[in-house]
Computed example of a mutant assay.
Amino acid sequence: MNIPNILTLLRIVLTPAVVIFLMEGSYFKALIVFSISGLTDGLDGFLARVLKQQTKLGAYLDPIADKALLTSSFLTLAIMGIIPGWLTVIVISRDCIILLGIAILSIMSISFEIRPAFISKVTTMLQLMTVLTVLVLQGLGNAMDYNWMHLLYWVTALFTILSGLGYLVRGIRLINTQG
């Protein structure tokens, strides 16, 4: 176990706290915990590279931590009627499609490397920014009817869809070349 993996595990452990704070309407506390989680996301990867502590475990845990935090946050906020349900469906559907693809490749014994594409990193950043912005506005007691919020929702949805399609194309290529 190394520092980057510990930070990733911390992000997983903090996820239920974000959900609990959201359910209690404690948006400022949720914002703080979510922000700490977001910082560990960037810090774990940076430290893994700088300290040359990249591990196979970290390669698996990092996306799991991201998915746990984002899926839980989007789902809770949608159930509470704070963000649009359609956006949550897009975010979660993309993740389910990726997991299904990984399962299919594994069942077919097709070797693959877990390496996020650039668009996926942008997608994760947009999803984090969407939740963070919602938490800031909720914490300040502001209404969510800003036109720019709708633009952020649509941009996040667009990148999420494009990222999902990118993974789908990569998976199909792997199956066609190795399957």
Rank of each mutant, 00 (worst) to 15 (best):
N2W: 05
I3R: 08
I3N: 08
I3W: 07
P4V: 02
I6P: 02
I6L: 15
L7W: 04
R11C: 03
V13C: 15
P16C: 09
P16Q: 05
P16M: 12
P16E: 09
A17E: 05
I20S: 10
I20N: 10
L22A: 11
M23L: 14
S26I: 00
Y27W: 14
A30I: 06
L31G: 03
L31C: 02
S35C: 05
I36N: 01
L39Q: 04
D41A: 01
D41W: 02
L47N: 07
L47K: 12
L47M: 14
V50H: 11
L51G: 02
L51V: 00
Q53A: 04
Q54V: 12
Q54W: 00
T55L: 13
T55F: 11
G58A: 09
G58W: 08
Y60N: 06
L61S: 04
P63N: 03
P63F: 01
A65I: 10
T71K: 09
T71N: 15
S72W: 10
S72H: 05
F74P: 00
L75W: 05
L75I: 09
A78K: 05
I82T: 10
I82K: 15
W86G: 04
L87P: 02
T88D: 09
T88K: 04
I90V: 15
I90C: 08
R94Q: 03
D95E: 15
L99F: 12
L100H: 01
I102R: 13
I102C: 13
A103H: 06
I104V: 13
L105G: 09
I107P: 05
M108T: 02
S109M: 10
S111L: 08
S111Y: 08
E113C: 00
I114S: 11
S120Y: 00
S120K: 03
K121C: 08
T124Y: 02
M125L: 15
M125Y: 07
M125T: 11
M129P: 01
V131I: 15
L132H: 12
L132E: 00
T133N: 03
V134E: 13
V136I: 06
L137D: 03
G141T: 08
N142Q: 14
N142T: 01
D145N: 15
N147Y: 08
N147L: 13
N147D: 12
W148P: 03
L151Y: 11
L152I: 01
L152F: 00
A157S: 14
A157P: 09
A157H: 07
L162Q: 12
L162I: 01
S163A: 15
G166M: 05
Y167K: 07
V169F: 15
R170A: 12
G171F: 06
L174I: 00
N176H: 07
T177K: 10
T177G: 00
T177S: 08
Q178K: 14
G179P: 08
